[in-house]
Nucleic acid binder design. Sequence first.
DNA 1: CATGAATGAGTCTTCATTCAT
DNA 2: TATGAATGAAGACTCATTCAT
Lengths: 202, 202, 202, 202
Amino acid sequence: MTPASTHPSVQDTTQDLRTRVLDAAAPLFADRGYAATSMREVALAVGCTKPALYYWFPSKEALFLAVVERYGRAMDAILEEGLSHPGTLRERLVAMVRRWFGFVTEHPVAVRLLVRLHTRPEEGAPVFDCQPMQARTSHLMRRILEGAGEGGELRADVDVDDALLALIGMVDLRVLLWLTGVPFPDDLPERLVDILLRGVAR
Amino acid sequence: MTPASTHPSVQDTTQDLRTRVLDAAAPLFADRGYAATSMREVALAVGCTKPALYYWFPSKEALFLAVVERYGRAMDAILEEGLSHPGTLRERLVAMVRRWFGFVTEHPVAVRLLVRLHTRPEEGAPVFDCQPMQARTSHLMRRILEGAGEGGELRADVDVDDALLALIGMVDLRVLLWLTGVPFPDDLPERLVDILLRGVAR
Amino acid sequence: MTPASTHPSVQDTTQDLRTRVLDAAAPLFADRGYAATSMREVALAVGCTKPALYYWFPSKEALFLAVVERYGRAMDAILEEGLSHPGTLRERLVAMVRRWFGFVTEHPVAVRLLVRLHTRPEEGAPVFDCQPMQARTSHLMRRILEGAGEGGELRADVDVDDALLALIGMVDLRVLLWLTGVPFPDDLPERLVDILLRGVAR
Amino acid sequence: MTPASTHPSVQDTTQDLRTRVLDAAAPLFADRGYAATSMREVALAVGCTKPALYYWFPSKEALFLAVVERYGRAMDAILEEGLSHPGTLRERLVAMVRRWFGFVTEHPVAVRLLVRLHTRPEEGAPVFDCQPMQARTSHLMRRILEGAGEGGELRADVDVDDALLALIGMVDLRVLLWLTGVPFPDDLPERLVDILLRGVAR
DNA sequence: CATGAATGAGTCTTCATTCAT
DNA sequence: TATGAATGAAGACTCATTCAT
């Protein structure tokens, strides 16, 4: 069992089957959803037989959860690093959003998958207890914003949660648009954070 | 000697069957998704036989589309009225957001259904050519904001689309949260619009 | 739905499918057992498709139980009549045993099926709560023997249950032998009852 | 990264695997039957892998036959000793029946297994050519009864086989009852033999 | 308008078995 | 000796759909 690279995009027969199954199942679950993806299709995509799938994963549900967890962990890892970024509130928020968009462009399958969970987790699919996308990011962002609130960088009459959810909402919607083909302008992080901090009114 | 299939005894026959089918199918599609909802379940929920379904709708796909279109039209109608609201930019935005939240609380099934389409329309489900939720609302909102931009109520260095999407993103995320049980505070429309207009920074 | 004859042995396509399924499934369950009989085989034997089976019976378990109950009822009905036979204890017992052997030769499938349940009901098969073969017959026989006990026809030092079970055991073993091809001699009922009543010792 | 299959941690390795397999497989075959017992379950019960099973037994069929033969031999050995018992016909029969019940209580698994074969050997299971339970015992008993017949201890008008099968039937039915939880009274051997020899009539 | 009865293709999952190591 | 990994066939059951009535 060779140490698998974190996100192999190329189909590589030298990898162990377990990893190849995860790789092949992810885009299927992401695009068709849990119910509409059959184990036969997964096996076909992997290039193995159905019982081979069941050798590595005891059920379709377990396979789905394994896929989701893998990508969830990947996103966590990426965003976690963003916390340590130094600078002013604006700089730290911009860095975080930029990192976020970076994750999205680098791991479109993960995003398609997590977005699906995020909006309507129940479609007969197994419940994924880890909080999805924005719940994780909100935790990180909250740490940034709470620091700002205590430092007096926020208006006193604004709820920290409101600010937090406002930014996450802005970013999530842009991610959704990106999934439909709308690209991220280079300065989008700055623009979104600017709106959050200063508002749009004259 | 009745066969194994069962269907509930008596049902309200005052409405015509077509409407009853749409009513019964909507929450099923909304909660389980297209693929995970079977025609048998729909028939059971309606209290009719499967062929009766096929009498009114030529296929599962057609039934799904009919359900979606009905709720899409309902939302359009509600939001459309919001346009005529008079007043300042802030007042008009607040009215629009409030109306939006009102639609959500009054038509939870519609929201569950449309949100699912909105995020990832393809799950084996037929393509729904009408623009999803935020595309419709954005059309309306854009009319409000463009008026404001021309009237000089917006900062000149802010893109109107950015402002538009920022508000929609904030609102959508709150709608998502509402679906998970988080209620709308009474003054939420004011708070969101205030953040949009004035920002959160001191 | 024509009123089905109680024990149709001939495959008759004019009968309704439900009856034909019961007819075809009985010998399969009787000879292979529950676990080793597949719904595919049943469908093949019936000459219909698998879903047609599931239209009439919600599950393999339900089909099995329906088969068992049908034959159980048939045996009950036959033996029940034996109770009313008049005459001495010996005559009544002989009549009962003869009727018993008659049922066996007329309904070999029923016997193969019930014997299997009787000896080891649990093989993953659904539990059949009605008492099997000899439990039913023992009830009838007990009525005969108890009458005899009160009438002073039995030895006072013999337990009625012992006598009952002795006869049932003798008969059951002969039935088992018959299933392997050993025929019933014409006077076997008399011989068995004679041994029961008078013993084999000089 | 372990695959989905699991097998229990440590097991007693002091016995050789072949014996442990036989020990573990016997109750499974006895309770579920041949068809409903899977090699996976056997391996799990043994605490070894499936190929290890196939190292010792070429097929499921062979394993089943090995199990059956082992218990068949065990029963033979026990009953064989009963032959040498001295005394009157009554004493010898009582001794034999007592020994029989003793075997049953000491080897319940063997009995559950053999009883299943005894009644309906074919359930997709391999044909077990050795004669089943009562065929073996009948051989032994016949020797006793034939001696008695020649010695004039039996009624001249009673068929020796009838007497033989009568006793076996009585005993077998009691064994079956014992399997369902009805205990053996201490004096049951005497009671059964008494009925056989003297009958139940006054 | 609506149904009782049925179907072909598919669902997830497990089977006994094998083979390179 | 034994195993990790895999397979072809089959298991029970459900799917969307149809058709004669």
